[in-house]
């Protein structure tokens, strides 16, 4: 995994904007470079890596479509990793995107988009085809949203499922199975993980087109 280091069971990404933090995370020096601590309790992608994700197919020049960017905690680490690429950050909540916009002003490879990911047509003119889709939208139809957006995908993707947002009455295991099946109709699922203890009732899937 490029631009990511692991030290003492913690992971860090190489800071794209030295001396700046995004959410008051710790900065460390390693072999003359500055790295930002990647908190698994705040970022599910970090939790997935710590829980044994074998491969994160992101390169230094990858283009990423990030659905559900929220206030930009995880996108900022993705932006560290794909330093010469681009991260298109789609978020629908004006309140949440406020902080994200501030982060984008400092990180030239992040492109904020305030739109509903249910309607890819509304932002098709703002993005390009991407090498990786990351989706973390806590909505009942989150897998369907991902599938709709795969028209922009040439490569890999990751989906983070929150069982509680899909159906509180069903057992999480059941939901994960069902959503995985939906994914398998369109993609090849490479890895499936649970995110305990960092996030409760969450599953993480890495897939390939």
């Amino acid at each position: 995994m490029e631009n990511i280091i692991k030290k003492d069971e913690r992971i860090y990404t190489k800071n794209l904007v030295p001396r700046e933090t995004v959410y008051n995370e710790k900065l460390i020096k390693f072999e003359g470079m500055e790295y930002r601590y990647w908190d698994p309790f705040r970022s599910k992608l970090s939790a997935a890596i710590l829980n044994g994700l074998h491969d994160l197919p992101l390169k230094k020049n990858s283009k990423v479509l990030y659905l559900g960017a929220a206030s930009g905690t995880t996108p900022s680490h993705v932006s560290d990793i794909v330093e010469n690429g681009r991260v298109y950050c789609v978020e629908f909540s004006p309140r949440a995107i406020r902080k994200l916009v501030n982060i984008c002003e400092k990180r030239k490879n992040m492109f904020p988009i305030l739109e509903d990911a249910n309607y890819p047509e509304r932002y098709a003119h703002l993005i390009e085809n991407v090498d990786f889709i990351y989706q973390d939208i806590a909505q009942p139809n989150q897998t369907e949203i991902l599938i709709k957006n795969s028209i922009f995908l040439k490569g890999y993707g990751a989906l983070c499922i929150k069982a509680r947002s899909i159906d509180v009455t069903l057992h999480p295991e059941k939901i994960f199975k069902r959503e995985k099946k939906k994914l398998e109709e369109h993609f090849e699922v490479l890895e499936s993980l649970r995110l305990e203890p960092y996030a409760k009732d969450h599953a993480f899937f890495l897939f390939k087109q």
């Binding site: 681009r86 004006p94 916009v101 030239k108 904020p112 988009i113 305030l114």
Partner: peptide
């Protein structure tokens, strides 16, 4: 060549 400044202004207007 793409520049994210336009995107930032667009989002700010929408907010």
């Amino acid at each position: 060549k793409l520049d994210n400044e336009y995107y930032i202004n667009l989002v700010k207007e929408k907010i």
